[in-house]
Design a binder for these strands. Structure first.
Lengths: 344, 344
DNA sequence: CTGTTAGCGCTTTCAT
DNA sequence: ATGAAAGCGCTAACAG
């Protein structure tokens, strides 16, 4: 593949009749090199098109300057916003990013972690797969003190940092809002309750019902996966009157939009018959009719915070306490839940 | 950072009282090692928690097993679909991905290329920034024969591979469809015509007008950037009757959706007063009302094709001819353009 | 089929 | 402020 010879620091040293060590120092801007020679060396390097070989450097230094990122999927608005936030922060600090998607599979996630471990990542940013419940597959990182930052979905892991929003509160707010709009039978459509995000949202939902004196009905709670198949399953129950909800709170906007479209097809009026609220503030929520009430989950900020947290942990080597960063969310009320304005 | 000593092939060799070369060969599954010893070595490696040091390996092999990907932005449905297609293909072949976004800035793109060059990428997949016009910033890759695959946006580069759809044809089809629906004054809202994609779409638009005997009106063509500011600029001209289009063809669905929402606010009926067509088949197109006519641009397939093309170029080292892969698109007609069904 | 040896390009003591 | 020398962990001739 490589045709012409690469320029090495030895080539530069030879050309300038100095030692390679000095060249190395100069190129790393070491203070122990005379400014004059430093200039000369840097110029010569440019002249000879020198490019440092980071493998040699990393091998010697035992560090990679690389950060791994593992997410369930890339083609999601929320997650690509997060990456979009992570990338410039890490880049500015001189880190490379390697990204893998688990596609919600534990096996793929584990494989990605192994690969990244082999590439000697300096840190890991992860939102784990739906199937992941423990942290055994992260042990190899733990043993080598490679810092891990979790975002969106948290795991119980020693010295980890987590970047999230207050899902209990957000969910409580959405549910309360639905109740205030007159809803009494609210479907909660969400992901696996074993995962922190969904457990928290379930808790917020339950708490809101309780505080408003509404009985919890397990028939209205669907906490498996946010798949199309499950959406249809719920729609079937609604169509057959097995359940007769007047509100629906789902854990992402994509499913909310599908619910709205399908419910309209089934002859339900939104929000008059069934009010629908989502989560994430995906741009799609401003487009569906009626516009979707949702929670603004600031993906880019989550990414920025996660990247900064990781960097500071790498640099400070501070492994003090388990820490959690809670960014602020915002309930965004739109027409899909405003029963009172809709005229019944 | 690293606390305990890493296990090296020498440790394994010592434990088994054999040579390091044999260990290396066994771990790389070389055929020239007896199966029996191979088994023994692999087991010992597992027992000792051996993890290969890819820096040493890469340094020696003079290859990185890393592919660079540069895209304008990550938080775009189309581009994250592309990445989503690229990632598993490359991963399966044992490559790592490093991803950077240019955010449509030439300077950022150039910096990313330099960084990637320093990390000795084996190949580059790129959809260049809006500001990029030439390929001078790719010369360092060219000199080292590092293969480059372009997708979506192409540049004139020696021995490059390009993965695209037939934008001329797609645009021709959309425009023809609008004309067949009765449109005579069709706004073409698109990106910088210097870029291949947009040049081609402009060509298809022009061709369709010509073939249907409609005069080209430069007042209806906006070929700068697909920004919100430019959308508003066009809307102002429509609102003030400076232009009075009966159709609008824009180069992405996001802008189409904004156009639809804003035009409805201004009192225009879609499609009766103004038919609107977009591009990309973003899921949002099925949600906006009326549903958006668009072109299915298969992001994931583009990604898969690009990754495969790059791999084969890396492996075959075939630098024969400039090659272009044209994937098939599909015009998707929905209500936003069906004037005839809408009843005028 | 296995071992010996050299060296990839860089950084880093230790001298001077 | 600079140089000499060693070595990071691995692979690839080469020899046997």
């Amino acid at each position: 593949l490589k045709t012409e010879q690469e320029t090495t620091i030895y080539d530069i040293a030879r050309a300038l009749e100095i030692s390679a060590s000095t060249v190395s120092r100069a190129l790393n801007d070491s203070p122990s090199v005379k400014n004059e020679t430093k200039k000369k060396i840097q110029e010569q390097a440019r002249k000879m098109n020198y490019q440092q070989n980071s493998f040699a450097s990393n091998l010697r230094r035992k560090t990679s300057n690389t950060i791994g990122v593992i997410i369930p999927r890339l083609d999601s608005y929320f997650l690509s916003s997060v990456i979009s936030g992570i990338e410039p922060v890490l880049n500015k600090e001189g880190y490379n990013l390697i990204i893998s998607q688990s596609l919600e599979s534990f096996v793929k996630e584990k494989a990605a972690i192994n690969t990244m471990f082999n590439s000697r990542i300096d840190g890991l940013l992860i939102s784990h797969s739906d199937e992941t419940t423990g942290t055994k597959h992260l042990n190899l990182l733990l043993k080598k003190n490679i810092p891990v930052v979790f975002f969106d979905r948290l795991l119980d892991y020693p010295n980890s940092i987590g970047i999230v929003i207050d899902n209990v509160k957000a969910s409580y707010e959405v549910t309360s809002h639905l109740i205030e709009q007159g809803c009494r039978k609210i479907v909660h459509f969400t992901g696996n309750s074993k995962a922190s995000v969904y457990k928290d949202r379930h808790e917020g939902y339950t708490k809101a019902l309780l505080e408003h004196g509404i009985e919890y009905d397990s028939k209205l709670v669907f906490d498996h996966k946010l798949t199309n198949a499950n959406i249809e399953m719920v729609l079937d129950k609604i169509a057959s009157r097995e359940i007769e909800p007047d509100g629906l709170f789902t854990s992402n906007d994509q499913s909310a939009v599908i619910f709205i479209c399908r419910l309209k097809e089934l002859g339900f009026r939104i929000p008059q018959d069934i009010a629908v609220a989502g989560f994430n503030n995906n741009p799609i929520s401003k487009v569906v009719e009626p516009n979707l009430t949702t929670v603004d989950y600031p993906g880019e900020e989550i990414g920025i915070a996660a990247a900064n947290a990781l960097i500071s942990r790498i640099k400070n080597k501070s492994y003090s306490a388990v820490s959690l960063s809670v960014l602020s969310h915002k309930l965004i009320v739109r027409n899909s839940t405003l029963k009172r304005n809709a005229g019944l």
